[in-house]
Nucleic acid binder design. Sequence first.
DNA 1: GCCAACGTTGGC
DNA 2: GCCAACGTTGGC
Length: 167
Amino acid sequence: MAEKSSAQKNETPHHWLMKSEPSVYGIANLSRDRHTMWEGVRNYQARNFMREMSVGDRVLFYHSNADVVGVVGVAKVRMAAKSDPTQFDARSEYFDAGAKKDDPRWSAVEVEFESKFAVAVTLDDLRGDHALASMMILRKGNRLSVTPVTAGEFAAVMKLARSVAKK
DNA sequence: GCCAACGTTGGC
DNA sequence: GCCAACGTTGGC
């Protein structure tokens, strides 16, 4: 019998944060497409986090290199990590000549749109919340595009989203 | 556009 | 295995 995934083992779902540049693929794109393959991650730590994702895990969608930098909505993991096809596509900017078909180097998950915040939770908002003091994205020098978020951090960001919407 | 803080590469 | 050089990320 195949090994059960963590979701099937009834573990508490995990939470994540994924960065994207809105000029490349933003929350508006995901809202329109409804779901997308998260291709092109070429960092081993970020890849390993994606491999830990289970279907149903919720994801904070973060805009980097943007006019408004911060969390702009929520996505959900629709399909667990599988081989990222772009690593074998010579025409793709993500092509990796060193990747082997029988042992893919890079993975991708599929995410689906859940919601777009009425008002973005900005980086300043995040920094101003003590509940987020140890959030990975706020650590100096952190550049990972995929990071785990604790359940408490996730809830704190959702609370911030409600409070900034009321201002 | 600047630049600090990374991660990766490759010579040794 | 070390580490300088290089490329990239991402806030500002």
